[in-house]
Each structure stands twice: as C-alpha cells, then as structure tokens.
Write a protein that binds this DNA or RNA. Structure first.
Length: 838
RNA sequence: GCGAGAGUGGCGGAACUGGCAGACGCGCUGGACUUAGGAUCCAGUGGGGCAACCUGUAGGGGUUCAACUCCCCUCUCUCGCACCA
C-alpha cells in the first residue's frame, strides 16, 4: 500500500513507535538512580510543576532541555539522578474547590495523574520512584519539622506588622511576591494590613547570601545581580540630631557621611513614631500619609521644630515628607539638597537653603557653574564624589577619606555609629488559606505559643472542611482541627490555622528527591550529614524559568544554609549550575490562555509526536533565549526525522547484503575520496555536537550539525563493502548523537540496525582528532582586505608556500598588475591578505 | 533614572580567542515525479547589476592589513530594580 510516496513500513509512525519504547524503558527501569560511591554522579533537575491541569509548551521546553542533559550525561558515564515531582499545594486547587465543589486534594491528585501521563508521553527519562508531591503528609511533615527546628534556633518568630495583603486571594504575600504593588498571582492591587504573622529570619543570612553570590559562577550573571540587588546591602552611618528645645533626638541613616555639613534640613517619614509628638497639624499629616510611598510629587511640611546639625551646630528645620520610607533606614533622613536630587527638588519647592559641600576634583564644563550657597546657580544636585568644601576641619578631604574621618568623629563623640543595612526583609510565611502545610504550633491559654512536639508530626490538614469562598480560611470552621490539647500542660489549646507559604515546600524539595522510595528521613540528634544527600547534592544542573530569580532561588539558598546549620548537609549552595530558559512566544507574546495564543502539547504530540516536539523546541533557539513558535518549524523538524527514518530504512537492505559486520570506524587509508569525506564529516560531527552541548548547551547548533551530516549521507552512494561500512559508521553515530534529543526514533532505528540493548545505555561516541582534520583547505585570497580569489591547497603547507600559491594565482596576478606589494599576511588554514600601495 | 542583555536576509537563527557574513531550518522561485500536491526529490535564494563588479551585520565616527566581533558617540527594543537616603 502506498501512502504519500512511502510504503507504509518506511514511514516513521510516531503513534506506534513512541509508546512502544516508553513502555520498554519503563519496564526495564533504565532511568532508576542508585547512589554509588564509586561512580561520578550528576544531579540534573528541572523546576517541578504546579499541577494546574495540563502541561504547557513552557514545560515541554523546560523538560526537553533537562532530558537532553540527563541523557547526554548518562551516555558519558555519569550516574545520573533525574527526578520529577509536584509543587502541589497552592491557591488554584482551593479556587477550583470553591468553583466546582471538588476537594483540593482530589483536584490536585487528578491533575497530577493526567500530567504525569503527559510527561511520560514526552519520553522524559525520570526516575519516578523518587516522585514527590508536596501536599502529601509524608512530605509536609518535614516542612513542619524544619519550622520547629527553626523556632528552636530563633529563626522562626512571630510578630505583628504591616503586611502585604491581597484582597482577591484573601491572604498575605511576601515582599518577593508583590510586583509593582500587585499580587504576583492574580495581579490585583496589594494593600497594607496589620496582622500577626510567622516570619523566617532570612535576614540572619543576608550577609552570607550576598557574599556567596560571587561563588555562583555557574549561574547566569543576570540572576546573580538580581539576587544581590534584592539583598541590597548598603553601608553607612547613623547619626543623632538633637531636637532643639526638647530632650529628644532623631536618628537618621546616611550612606554619605561626607555630605553631613551640607545637611540644611531633616525629613521624617509620616509613619515615624515621633510624628505624633512633633506634629500638631493632623490634617497636614493625613495628606502626607495619603501620598506616602507613592511615586508622585514630593510633598512635605515643616513640623515647626528644628534640629541641630552636630557637625556645625546649625539650627535646621525638621520636615515631614511623603518620600521618606519607614521601612528603610531609620525612617528619618538628613537632607543634603546640593548633593541629592530628591532633596534638591524638595528644597527648591519649599525654598530651603542649599549648601555645596562637595566639589568635583576636576571641574568639567558641566559642573563648573556649581556654586551656592549665596550666589545660587546650581541646576541640579551634584551626586558624585569629590573634594569637601565648607566642611570645617574636614574641608579638602576626598569623599572616601571624609566618610571614614567623619564616621570616626561621630562615633568618638557618641553621636552615632556605623551600620550596615539590607533591603532584604524577613520572610513572612503565614497564609490564611487551607491548601498548604499547617503551621505546627498551638495556642494555650496557660502556656502561650507551644510548638507541636516532633512525635506528633505531621499535623494533618483535615479533609472534612467546607469551601465557601467567603469568610476566612476553612480551617477556622473545622472544630476537630481547631481544638486540641496543649502538649505542655494538657489543657485546652487552639491550633494555628494559618498555613505556610508554598514557597517553603519548594525551598528544599531537591533534597527530598535524594532519599528515593524509602522516604524522606532526617536524623535526630546528634545529626550527621545524610549519606544519600552527601552523595547526590548539590544539584549539578538546575533548569527553569527566570521568573524565580529572587523568589524560589533565594529561598532555596536560605533553606540550604539552615539545613547546613542543622547538621543535615555539609554544603551551602544548592545549585551548582543554573540555566534559565527563555519563554515560549507566539505572535509576539508569551503563550497564555488569556491571549489565546497557546499551542496544546497534547495536540502536538498526537499530530507530530514527542520527538518532533522536542526537536523543534531545542532547534529553534538556544535554550536561554525566547523561543518563537512556528508551525512550519515543527513541520521542518518532523520532515528531518522522516528523512532519517527513510534513509536508514532504504539503505538497510544493501547494508545487510554486502557489508562486513560491525559499525566500527575504519582507517582513512585505502578508501575513496567520497568515503574519506563522509568519514571525516562523521568525526567532525561528533566533535561539533559534543562541544556545542558542552558550550552552554547550544543544542540548536548541535542539531544543525547533525542535519548537515544527514545531508552528506544522503548524497553518498556506497558502491562496495568498504563504502557500506563507512555508511554504517555514519548511521550509527548519527543515531547515538541524536538520541538525547529524540530518544524514540533513534531507539527504534538503533534496534532496527541490529542492536540489542537500549541506545540510552550506549557510550557517547568519541571523535579522532586525526580524522577530523581536513586534507585540503580552501584558501581565501584578499587584496587590501577584499575577497579576490579562492583556491584549494593542501593542509599544513608552510607560510612561504601558501604565500607563493596565492601570489601565483593568475587571477590575483592580473588584479595586482603593476601595483607594488607592500605586505602579505598569511593566516594559517584560512586566508592570505595582500596589501598593495606605495 | 539605575542595572543587565540585545539589535545580522522575508522569518527563526549561525559565525570559537578580530580572518570567506548569512551554517542549519522555515519561507519563496524554478524543475522532476504526478489525475492532483499543502507529499517527496533536485536546483536556486541578502540587496543591486546581463556581467566583471559594487554593496551590505540599528546609525555615525575610530583602531587594524582585516571589524557582526575591539574603542567612542547616538538611536531602538527586551528584562530586572526603582523615592533605599
């Protein structure tokens, strides 16, 4: 029967081929990982998905990248750990429960089942024995265990504070989860609300997390910079300004002690505790509060009070201003209008004096006009470093030195101290939601806050709750959960009803995978590093979206340090190498349901198969860049696979008929030029694919090289047994090199050409440098840098002879004519440039 | 505003430490096989020109025998941070 020019068996039928091998791999447990001290390990991890229902193209891309790496490393002889699991707690499950009257647990587990089948259809080489779901009690009991350990160490604590509150999600958000004043999840406006909350003291590790950023050499620079900025260290000085006529002083924070003499007024945050005492005009204060922290105009008013500048004893006015944040520094600033643009604008607006105390070392045209006080003329603040003027005994010092001297002076006089500030805040983890890990504490009328003892863990999330979508967390309604006895006194106690931020779950899941099927287990005291963890961790290659640059990745770095300090592990950084893959774009925008530009992986796999889907997403762009979706590109990938299939199939008969057994390499000697060419191309391709993978995982160019090899094979016509052996060698290596990208078709063809063990168990091919080398090179001749001729010359000629060849070329001779040759530059194996002229 | 990255055919993208710009794929054009082609195969394909040649990597300058690559200026786009004192 003829179908589209192929006989049926000549076609690559992905619908039968792909499931066949998926079953085969699964039955043989080819991807099961076992710790083995004698083998070099490689831990390859992709960010685990939230079980939202179905996978999307972003997942396909992410997991295809990870799978190529895992398969490649396996073939290179590494003992590879490549696990997968589910970030299974979270809001969508709860929303689904309210909407469809379906329990979050049921919804989540059903989604997991469906998505797992989808992942298996992609032929991903996971060790499913290590699968985890963060919503299972066996998993979240360790969240609770960590929480209690952190409570013991003072790393978890409770405090009342203003928190970010999302009305739509009816819960608190961490600072990291607020993006442009909006909720990271639902995009609605976040408001401030005063609540009592549990916090994790990530700031305890602020300095270490910052310092260790420099050791993250396997991370994209961009992500490291984002982390550094997020931690936001600044060194400065706190200074007390006495309030004139009161027995009270005001502490300010500055990173520019060198400008202290230029402080001509002070500004107070409207939320500063002293405001109540200092401000009489409540209406004015209300107005400032209304504009507090907003990026609009800078406004303020004079409190009527004055402070004393400790450097020059000057009386300067004290203002309240909307742009001074209570959350940073001390909530009060010294204003130096000459050297800070904000203060400058403010001073201009309210007619406050401006005093220049820093002058540039070398006056340029731009700032030569810098004058003031009295004779004004200062168009904008001069914010750079320079030399101090109008600064008493410190005048003449450079900014850097002056910072030191002035800080010393302030400290000696007891007027303040040097401090380091971080932008990083402690991590608020309380969530007023149901579908999360219960925080394992109880509130006892007699004993207060009491942690749940280790033997009573896990505190199980009750299943029998109602989802109304109104009021607070369903846990508040669950009488059986709410009421308990105090572990300390046995009296009545009430359970904590808040659950943990789901980012807690994902902060250590990579550690959980290391334990395998026997289940997660951390030693009790005295703790020693767990051997499984010591073997597998850290993650050698982590792959995921850049959207987690400061959320998940920072929390994980924090948790890893907590685990280290608990004695569970002995290293500090969880992820040695990080690859942040680009987004999948269609019609110029990220694929999303709301934009209606999604491509359904189910459809793609059904229509073209998993190999095609993988190949396209790996070929169309390097992994770190955005991937522009193209239906035609998918067809191109499909066509390529069919070409290989057809080629191997068609040549199979003649191969069987006349070739010697084996698919091993042959020597260059005694074979035809066409053979030498194909053999050389094969070795060159092995080299190219290997180095492209090694060089930042540039799969797109690796695949391009394989396409070139296949093109070359297509134009090769074997005539005798020797030729066929060359052909066999080319086929074998094409399949091996392609197998990490498209495991199904290569497995099928691999078996088809007479192999018995899986292609994924084979050794990665090696190239022979001798075989890679060309015998002849095309020599490019340039005259004055312009391309004028090309000729073939043997490799390895000495420069003098190469030069003679170029000059001997009749065409070149003709162009040069009577011109004088001034210089000849020979670049080995590439070109000759003849420079003419007088 | 600050920080990071990018700008190359009709499109996605190649080009390692400066050395033939446009690999590979898509699309397009022509041809073969066809009742048919949105299948497959073959050939061509940056722009201009019949051609020899000229020209071309956002724009302008520079360094060099030689620049997509290095330096300076300008423009555009993407991402991150954003009153952090």
């Amino acid at each position: 029967m003829k179908v589209g020019g192929y006989t049926l068996e000549e076609r690559f039928e992905h619908r039968t081929v792909e499931p066949k091998w998926q079953k085969y791999w699964q039955e043989r447990q080819l991807y099961k990982a076992t710790a083995d001290k004698s083998a070099k390990k490689f831990y390859c991890l992709e960010m685990f998905p939230y079980p939202s229902g179905k996978i999307h193209m972003g997942h396909v891309r992410n997991y295809a990248i990870g799978d190529v790496i895992a398969r490649y490393k396996r073939m290179q002889g590494y003992n590879v750990l490549h696990p997968m699991g589910w970030d299974a707690f979270g809001m969508p499950a709860e929303n689904a429960a309210i909407k469809h009257n379906l329990h979050p647990s049921k919804w989540t587990y059903e989604n997991m089942t469906y998505m797992k089948a989808q992942l298996n259809k992609l032929g991903l080489s996971y060790d499913w024995d290590r699968e985890i779901a963060t919503c299972s009690p066996e998993y979240y009991r360790w969240n609770q265990w960590f929480f209690i350990r952190m409570l013991e160490k003072g790393l978890a604590y409770r405090k009342t504070s203003y928190v970010n509150w999302c009305r739509s999600c009816a819960t608190v958000l961490a600072n990291e989860q607020v993006i442009d004043d909006k909720c990271w999840r639902c995009d609605s406006l976040v408001v401030q609300k005063e609540l009592e909350q549990w916090f994790l003291r990530i700031t305890h590790y602020a300095e270490e997390l910052l310092k260790a950023c420099d050791e993250l050499t396997g991370w994209p620079e961009k992500v490291v910079v984002m982390q550094k900025n997020w931690i936001g260290k600044s060194q400065g000085l706190e200074v007390d300004f006495r309030i004139d006529g009161m027995d009270e002083s005001l502490r300010i924070f500055t990173t520019r002690p060198d400008t202290l003499f230029g402080s001509t007024f002070l500004c107070l945050s409207p939320n500063h505790p002293l405001c109540g005492k200092l401000v009489s005009g409540k209406a004015e204060l209300e107005k400032i509060i209304a504009h507090y922290g907003k990026e609009d105009e800078k406004i303020g008013f004079h409190t009527g009070h004055f402070c004393i500048n400790p450097m020059n004893a000057e009386k300067i006015p004290l203002y309240v201003a909307n742009f001074v944040l209570m959350e940073y520094g001390t909530g009060a600033i010294m204003s130096v209008p000459a050297h800070d643009q904000r203060d400058f604008d403010f001073a201009k607006k309210y007619g406050l004096s401006i005093r220049v105390v820093i002058e540039p070392e070398q006056k340029s045209e731009k700032n030569s006009e810098l004058r003031t006080p009295n004779s004004e003329l200062l168009a904008e603040a001069y914010e750079d470093a320079g030399v101090l003027v109008n600064s008493g005994k410190f005048s003449g010092l450079k900014s850097d030195a002056a910072k030191e001297r002035i800080a010393e002076y302030i400290e000696e006089k007891g007027l303040g101290k040097r401090v380091v500030k971080y932008r990083l805040r402690d991590w608020g983890i309380s969530r007023q939601r149901y579908w999360g890990t219960p925080i394992p504490v109880v509130y006892c009328e007699a004993c207060g806050i009491v942690p749940v003892p280790e033997k009573d863990l896990p505190v199980i999330l009750p299943e029998d709750v109602k989802f109304t979508g109104t009021g607070g967390s369903p846990l508040l309604e669950s009488e059986s959960f709410l009421h308990t006895t105090c572990p300390s006194c046995g009296g009545h106690a009430r359970r904590e009803t808040d659950t943990m931020d789901t980012f807690v779950d994902s902060s250590w899941y990579f550690v959980a995978y290391c334990f395998g099927r026997d289940g997660i287990a951390f030693n009790s005291e005295p703790r020693t590093p767990n051997p499984e963890l010591s073997y597998w961790m850290p993650v050698d290659q982590y792959i995921g979206g850049v959207e987690h640059a400061v959320l998940h990745l920072l929390y994980s770095r924090f948790f890893t340090r907590v685990l280290r300090d608990l004695g569970i592990i002995s290293y500090s950084e969880p992820f040695k190498n990080l690859l942040t893959q680009g987004m999948v774009i269609k019609d110029g925008a990220k694929m999303s349901k709301s934009k209606g530009n999604v491509v359904d992986p189910d459809y793609l796999i059904e229509q073209y198969g998993s190999d095609t889907s993988r190949l396209f997403s790996l070929f169309a762009a390097p992994p770190e860049k955005d991937l522009e979706w193209s239906d035609k590109g998918v067809e191109g990938a499909y066509r390529f696979l069919n070409r290989i299939w057809g080629f191997v199939y068609r040549t199979q008969k003649s191969l069987e008929a006349g070739s010697p057994p084996g698919y091993d390499s042959v020597a260059m000697e005694g074979i035809s030029p066409a053979c030498r060419k194909l053999l050389r191309k094969t070795h060159q391709t092995i080299k190219k694919v290997t180095t492209d993978i090694e060089r930042e995982y540039h799969f797109n160019t690796a695949i391009a090289a394989l396409m070139e090899l296949v093109n070359e094979m297509n134009s090769f016509e074997p005539k005798d047994a020797k030729d066929m052996q060359i052909m066999k060698f080319a086929i074998k290596n094409t399949l091996l090199l392609l197998s990490p990208f498209t495991p199904h078709i290569t497995e099928e063809l691999w078996m088809h050409i007479g192999n018995e063990s899986s292609i994924s168990e084979q050794k990665w091919p090696e190239w022979d440098e001798e075989m890679v080398r060309e015998e002849e090179v095309e020599l490019v001749t340039q005259i004055n840098g312009k391309l004028r001729g090309k000729l073939m010359i043997p490799c390895g000629l000495p420069d003098e002879e190469v030069k003679a060849c170029a000059l001997g070329d009749p065409k070149i001779k003709e162009i040069i004519g009577q011109q004088k040759i001034r210089k000849v530059i020979v670049i080995k194996g590439r070109l000759v440039n003849i420079v003419t002229g007088e």
